[in-house]
Design a protein around this nucleic acid. Structure first.
Length: 736
DNA sequence: TTAATCGTACTTTTT
DNA sequence: GTACGATTAA
């Protein structure tokens, strides 16, 4: 069956056939990397007779894992079943559940996300009476995360004077944080990577087991692995050395998360016998796009030498759209989307809009809605991050792991049930004194200083949890969740509110319940723990659908590994892309450039790049210059669009002109953009008729606050009442 | 002591 | 626009 090699170019074939020993494959953008990986696995199974269960393939997202499994199935037939495919985090979680006892955890441990972790830090601040005014808990949390990412534990920091201002001892908070998680039988994302290493180092027998279990290891997106991930694969492949990593140093974009580009650049140092292959032929994009992207990324110093090339046609030049502001930019893009969908065979699902920050999606979304263009948004506020969904999940997590203090604290008084801050504080300090979990403290509420009123409420709460905990085993999971969540009163609380927002929160809770039923239908063992784990490790991209006729909106980071015939890169302005943060100096310009490279190389046929002269950010209007990345593209590959948009002539959308007029210059910021502050608001008064860009004419019913920050309550046509902040509204006074 | 309202600060990218 | 914390009202 060596038709496995048919249709592969010589380099790809060589990479597939080099089955044994360490292998590094540099795979340029669009060079058929996934093909090589899947064919390689099929080759191992069919030609080398390796049992599938001895193969471990690690991908970056669950979606990529699913796709890989599908493609191997096509190639290798039935035998693929027991192959281990997953993300680092999901594979680790699986190992850790099995071996939890060896680490002093129960197998029902909870996975904490950043929000949960931050709550732990905040609780520590409360317990220790640390001041939050000098150093925000968030900052402490991120510092700790940073250390964990680099595998630096609190003990290794001890020699250094790590005191923050305000007398906060970082090492102590770090220690407490680790202790709290352990006591809560919880692991954060970093632990999922660190604990297996700890496990393997302390238990040679267990390590040996997994070494022989994973006799062939393949790692995709290797350029984005961090130190812990490197160590894990190194440990696992130490004996057999059958480690194949695939990546592209030019696409390393997760340095901020601890990814170490040196993992790929220095692979040979760690594995001196490594064979190296380079896939440099691009099959995805036009010559224009390949040449442009290569030219830009060629400005980076820290990279392995390689030259991407293609035999594809030249294709259209990259179109640069210049907009006056972000609203205008959104219109230009929407116009192009419509134009392309009408004048070509392409549909909206062939098009994507990519940007640097999630905040940019709003203006785009508004305009797409106006135009009636269907879109799907990846990222932003995720479904599982919504308050009501997290609350619901917290109720479920308590059942699985009562030691999960974060979840218990989260829902103890949600919905409000008469257990206020004071009671919570007393319970928490009792738990601390007795060295027991918060839930244990609730059960012993009579021994605490909590009053009888709230005390009875606490007892009701405990009864509620225990009652449903006992029922879990004997009922259908979906029915059980529904009954449980209803009895928590969570839904009732929102029903009482009777607002649009509450309405959608209720919908989300039901959507969660439906999600569980759907999970039941597709999972072999639909247990509560399996569901909670899937939810914890799910990414946004995992939920992306291909086949609906929708434009895709997402960040360049999320777009990694995807491709679209038409790609728009929005917001190409100095300070935004490359992004410059005001707080900690210059970021990593080379990484920003790689990110741009990733974005541009997503395009198959045509790329559009847009930038604005002025952009609303943090409530201010900033003047901006076009990104340096635009000028790094060879001139002859670009065309500057001078397209006029119909909408420009309509008075309704003259916000830019008006704003341009009332803008006054302030001092130049240290960075690229000039800061512009709108003048103090015009004098609004109750009873005036005003015109709003979106809502039309209306009458001011009430004003609260003063100046630009004042809130206006305006009654628009159709009895629509809206509250609007004067400063941001594009209001025109019609009559006094 | 609890609940509701008000004011403020925040938004880089994600497993 | 949101989500949190603080302040105030009950």
């Amino acid at each position: 069956m060596s038709d496995l090699l048919a249709g592969l170019n010589p380099e790809q074939q060589a990479a597939v056939k080099a089955a044994d020993g360490p292998v590094l494959i540099f795979a340029g953008a669009g060079s058929g990397k996934t093909r090589v990986l899947t064919h390689r696995i099929a080759y191992l199974i069919q030609e080398k007779q390796i049992p599938p269960y001895q193969i471990l393939a690690v991908t970056f997202t669950n979606k990529a894992a699913g796709e890989m499994r599908d493609r191997i199935r096509e190639l290798a037939g039935d035998n693929h079943g027991q192959i281990n495919v997953g993300t680092f985090h999901s594979i680790s979680a699986r190992i850790l559940r099995r071996e939890a006892e060896s680490l002093g955890y129960s197998r029902y441990f909870t996975i904490y996300d950043d929000d949960d972790g931050l709550r732990v830090i905040k609780q520590i601040f409360k317990d220790k009476n640390l001041p939050t005014d000098q150093v925000p808990p968030k900052g402490v949390f991120y510092t700790i995360k940073n250390y964990k990412n680099q595998m630096i534990g609190p003990d290794e920091l001890v020699d250094q004077p790590f005191f923050f201002r305000g007398g906060i001892d970082l090492v102590e908070v770090y220690r407490l944080y680790e202790r709290r998680l352990k006591q809560s039988n919880a692991m954060d994302f970093d632990d999922l990577l660190l604990k297996p290493i700890e496990l393997f180092k302390n238990n040679p027998a267990i390590l040996k087991l997994y070494q022989s279990r994973f006799r062939y290891i393949l790692v995709d997106e290797y350029q984005d692995t961090n130190r812990a991930q490197f160590q894990m694969v190194k440990l696992l492949s130490e004996v057999h050395q059958n480690l194949c990593v695939v990546g592209d140093d030019d696409q390393s974009i997760y340095g901020w998360r601890g990814a170490d580009i040196r993992n790929i650049l220095d692979f040979q140092d760690a594995f001196p016998k490594a064979q190296i292959f380079k896939l440099e032929r691009n099959y995805r994009s036009t010559k224009t796009i390949v040449t442009a992207a290569s030219a830009v990324v060629g400005n980076n110093r820290d990279r392995a030498t390689k030259q991407l090339w293609t035999e594809a046609e030249q294709g259209d030049p990259i179109t640069v759209l210049h907009a006056s502001d972000d609203q205008h930019e959104a219109r230009l893009i929407a116009d192009k989307l419509l134009e392309i969908s009408q004048q070509s065979e392409l549909t909206f699902s062939d098009m994507a809009i990519l940007y640097r920050t999630n905040a940019q999606s709003r203006a785009l979304e508004e305009r797409l809605r106006d135009y009636g263009i269907p879109y799907q948004l990846v990222g932003g506020t995720k479904f599982y991050d919504r308050k009501e969904v997290k609350d619901s999940l917290a109720y479920l997590r308590i059942i699985q792991n009562p030691a999960d203090d974060v979840s218990v604290a989260r829902v103890l008084n949600t919905p409000p049930r008469g257990i206020g801050k004071t009671s919570e504080l007393r319970l928490a300090s009792f738990a601390l004194d007795e060295d027991i979990s918060l839930f244990e403290a609730l059960k012993r509420v009579d021994e605490t200083a909590v009053g009888t009123g709230p005390g009875n409420r606490v007892k009701d709460f405990v009864t509620l949890i225990e009652k449903h905990g006992a029922r879990l085993a004997e009922s259908d999971l979906g029915d059980w969740v529904q009954a449980y969540l209803i009895e928590t009163g969570l839904i009732q609380q929102y029903q009482a509110e009777d607002s649009e927002e509450a309405e959608s929160r209720i919908e989300n809770i039901y959507e969660l319940i439906n999600g569980i039923r759907e999970f039941q239908g597709r999972h072999e063992e639909p247990t509560l723990e399996a569901f909670l784990e899937e939810v914890a490790l799910l990414t946004d991209v995992d939920k992306l659908t291909d086949d609906r006729r929708q434009v895709t909106l997402m960040t360049c980071h999320s777009a990694k590994g995807l491709e679209f015939p038409i790609v728009f890169l929005a917001g190409l302005e100095e300070g935004l892309f490359p992004l410059i943060r005001q707080t900690d100096g210059d970021g990593d310009l080379e990484e920003e450039r790689r990110l741009f490279y990733v974005g541009l190389t997503r395009a198959e046929k045509r790329a559009f790049i847009s930038y604005c002269s002025a952009r609303q950010r943090y409530g201010e209007t900033l003047l901006a210059k076009p990104s340096r990345f635009i000028s790094e593209i060879p001139m002859d590959l670009m065309e500057m669009s001078t397209a006029k948009v119909l909408g420009d002539e309509q008075p309704v959308t003259t916000g830019t002109n008006r704003r341009g007029k009332i803008m006054s210059e302030r001092k130049q910021s240290p960075f690229v953009a000039k800061r512009i502050k709108p003048e103090e608001a015009v004098d609004y008064a109750v009873g005036q008729t005003v015109e709003h860009a979106y809502f039309g004419r209306g009458r001011i019913m009430a004003i609260t606050g003063s100046g630009g920050d004042s809130k206006l309550t305006i009654l628009f046509a159709g009895n629509q009442q809206k509250k609007i902040i004067a400063r941001y509204a594009k209001l025109k006074i019609i009559t006094k």
